[in-house]
Amino acid sequence: MIVISSANGKEYKVEIEAVQANDYKSITKSRYFFDWKKEQSQEVYKIKIVGSSDILGLVSVERIPEEWRIHIRLITVSKENKGRDKEYENIAGNLITFISKIAVREYGELACVSLKPKGAIAQHYIDKFGMNITGMTLSVEIAEILELINTYDHDYGEK
């Protein structure tokens, strides 16, 4: 997986790992928009450029195995990566793809990743990630997940 520098188009390899207890010291609400300390009991992942310790984005999820589904509770990019002046592209896409891969590993062709954004943000997720809409819930299922992997995961993408 890679992120792309908005400044010069340069690509950087990224890694996504589980957040460790000591990471929460640097995960502040002012930089990551939510009180992530409240998510400490959840499954939380961070994305960073390989070789760097700076966290570019975060996602917390809840597995719902009886529905073959993983629900995204919170997802964010860091303050520097919000909006038109963002430093890097693809942060949220990589995080969603990473969670989608976990869903495929666990649930195979029944895999589903869901989230519930509001208003214009929902339309953005539909347009950008090809999400299905059911009531207020957005989801990617296997057809969309294969597309996401093809787009974002350069180690696994379809040939």
Partner: peptide, 9 residues
């Protein structure tokens, strides 16, 4: 613009 900064779902 800014749509990816965060979703609380």
């Amino acid at each position: 613009e800014g749509a990816e900064f965060g979703v609380d779902s």
